[in-house]
């Protein structure tokens, strides 16, 4: 029974997800406040956004109530920081480089950085693998599919 008590979470923690949702709904209401509403027979662009925002708020409150009442809720698992950081870095590097330096360098660095998420990978493996993957990507996307992306900087 001891372990089960530890797994149970505080009220604040249990209300988190509903609160985030409520925040989204309220944010929508605030941003869309100035959009013209119109009438039911002649709706403006602001009508549906406001209706959806109100519905999100209502559902969010309901979720908060249900979650707080449900004391047996399991705690959300820990975050995989290593995966999160390196996957994010890889995609951001790709996004920055693809216009500046072209597809081939972008693919190469994205593979290298994303492989760092795996603790056990050695530098030699990463380098060799990145070269192979970039070559395959170049063959597939640029030679075979002829995607209109420059391979290297112009």
């Amino acid at each position: 029974m001891q372990t089960q008590d530890q797994a149970r979470t505080s009220i604040v923690h249990r209300a988190t997800s509903g609160a985030v949702l409520l925040f989204i709904g309220l944010g929508m209401l605030a941003i869309g406040w100035d959009y013209p509403i119109g009438r039911l027979t002649q709706m403006g662009p602001g009508f549906i956004p406001r209706a959806i925002a109100v519905m999100i708020c209502v559902i969010a409150v309901a979720i908060i109530i249900v979650d707080i009442a449900d004391a047996g809720m399991d705690k959300a698992g820990g975050i995989q920081w290593r995966g999160l950081i390196f996957v994010s870095a890889a995609m951001l590097i790709f996004a920055v480089l693809v216009d500046l330096a072209g597809l081939v360098p972008a693919m190469f660095l994205a593979v290298v950085v994303s492989m760092l998420a795996d603790k056990a990978a050695s530098p030699a493996t990463i380098l060799l693998y990145a070269v192979l993957a970039t070559g395959a990507g170049w063959l597939l996307f640029l030679v075979t599919l002829e995607l209109p992306i420059p391979a290297f900087w112009r």
Partner: peptide, 26 residues
């Protein structure tokens, strides 16, 4: 998974030639 990441990046980017789309995907 590194290959899948590259596939996703290239696919999303080539869809509308938009860097913003890659960042949004992340």
């Amino acid at each position: 998974y590194p290959v899948i990441i590259v596939m996703i990046c290239v696919g999303v980017y080539s869809h509308r030639t938009s860097v913003t789309d890659v960042v949004l995907t992340l």
